[in-house]
Every structure is written in C-alpha cells, then in structure tokens.
Design a protein around this nucleic acid. Structure first.
Length: 202
DNA sequence: CGGCTGATTCGCT
DNA sequence: GCGAATCAGCCGC
C-alpha cells in the first residue's frame, strides 16, 4: 500500500482516472485525527467537450484557478455557500481536468466523522460519507486544502493505492446536479461499484 | 448593486 | 417533496 503520486493524476484521460480511483483509500489528518475511507463514487469533469466543467471553454476565476495547476493537487470549492466539494485536479498544467469524489466507504475515524457531522444520534457507516459535501465535512476538508499537493510526503490529505477492497464491476451513470450543461448533462461520467450501499443519495 | 443560480444537505410537511 | 442556509460568479440596471 503506497501513496498515490502525481504521475497517476497527470495521465491524459480523466475518464479513466475517475474509474481507477474507485477502491483506493482517501486519508485526511485534521486536528490530529486520522480519517479515511475507500473511494466509492466519482465523477469526471473534462476541460474540453464538457459544459458542466468549471474550466469549460477556458473559463478562469479566482475560485477555479487551482484547476489550471498540475495534476495531483486538490481543488476544493464552496457550493451553495455551505458545502465544500473535494476534487482532484488531473492532467498536465493548463489541461484543467478534475475528478469529484462523491462518496466513501468509511474505514478509520468513524467516531470523529460522526462528531463533525453532528445532528442525529447515531449514523450508520453508509450515512457518514454518502455525498460530496458530507464526506468533506466528515473528513474535515475545507477550502484551506485548495491547492494542497496530495503527493507531498507530509501531506495532511492524500490517497493510498489500497488493494484492501475488492471492487465490484463499475456502473456508469449521468452526473448529478448539472442540468445546466445541456446535452453534456447526459454524459455517463459518474461511476460506482454495482450494488454499493455507500453511494450518494439518488 | 440587486437578483438569480448552483458539481448540496437537512429538517419539516 | 419543499424550502432554507448563504457564498461565488454572472448579468442587467
């Protein structure tokens, strides 16, 4: 089991990277607490041919500037003014692709996740990281992690090439919440293992 | 500057 | 199933 390095994220095909990430382990160290989970659900966003992508047609804003940096850094942005959504920048500098992590199967730090989410008394495992905003909250990921290099040796947020999880065949479905992307809203660029109970809500 | 929308989630009806 | 929470980006005045 080893930390995923930038050359993995700098491959040219973000659709393939999004699929290959499923089954790997995302780890955070925040406030001295380790939390981790197996990546279960991902979505790919590509800088060309994808109107849903924040960098579509070369769009640049202060918010998405990190997308234009090298593959292997985090792109964390605020959605609906409330939720921090965690993406991994892919491809080479200037080819602003990203993979959104939408759900995890929690492994370590479940008590801490429960605490950070607050609310109801006791959440089942599959209710701790089943959504992009939720998993960020559970793992303590916020905008201070934007531009964070995931392959740094002392990274507080990184990915392990975990073989602990035998993953079922992947299902491809349209992405969530991007109706504004017109015909590209139908692209089946969201993946998860068939039958998984850890995916985000339908 | 006001108004609208969004890669969402939670709680109440 | 609906509305609120509440910020960045964009468009029109």
């Amino acid at each position: 089991m080893k930390q995923l390095k930038s050359d993995f994220f700098q491959q040219d095909d973000v659709l393939q990277i999004a699929q290959d990430l499923i089954g790997m382990e995302l780890v955070s160290r925040v406030g001295g607490e380790y939390c981790s989970g197996i990546i279960i659900e991902t979505e790919a966003y590509r800088h060309y041919g994808d109107k849903a992508c924040h960098s579509h047609a070369g769009k640049r804003t202060p918010r998405n500037e990190s997308m234009y940096m090298e593959g292997g850094i985090a792109y964390v942005y605020l959605c609906y003014g409330i939720h921090h959504l965690f993406n991994i920048v892919c491809n080479r500098s200037g080819k602003a692709d990203a993979v959104l992590i939408r759900a995890l199967m929690p492994l370590e730090g479940k008590e801490v996740m429960q605490q950070r989410l607050g609310g109801m008394k006791k959440r089942k495992d599959h209710e701790l990281c089943n959504g992009p905003g939720k998993l960020s909250k559970a793992l303590g990921i916020n905008r201070t992690f934007d531009r964070h290099l995931l392959d740094a040796i002392d990274a507080d947020l990184f990915i392990l090439d975990s073989k602990r999880m035998e993953v079922a065949p992947l299902v491809a479905r349209p992405r969530i919440g991007i109706d504004y992307a017109e015909e590209d809203a139908f692209l089946p660029w969201r993946w998860y293992p068939k039958g998984s109970k850890y995916i985000s809500k339908p």
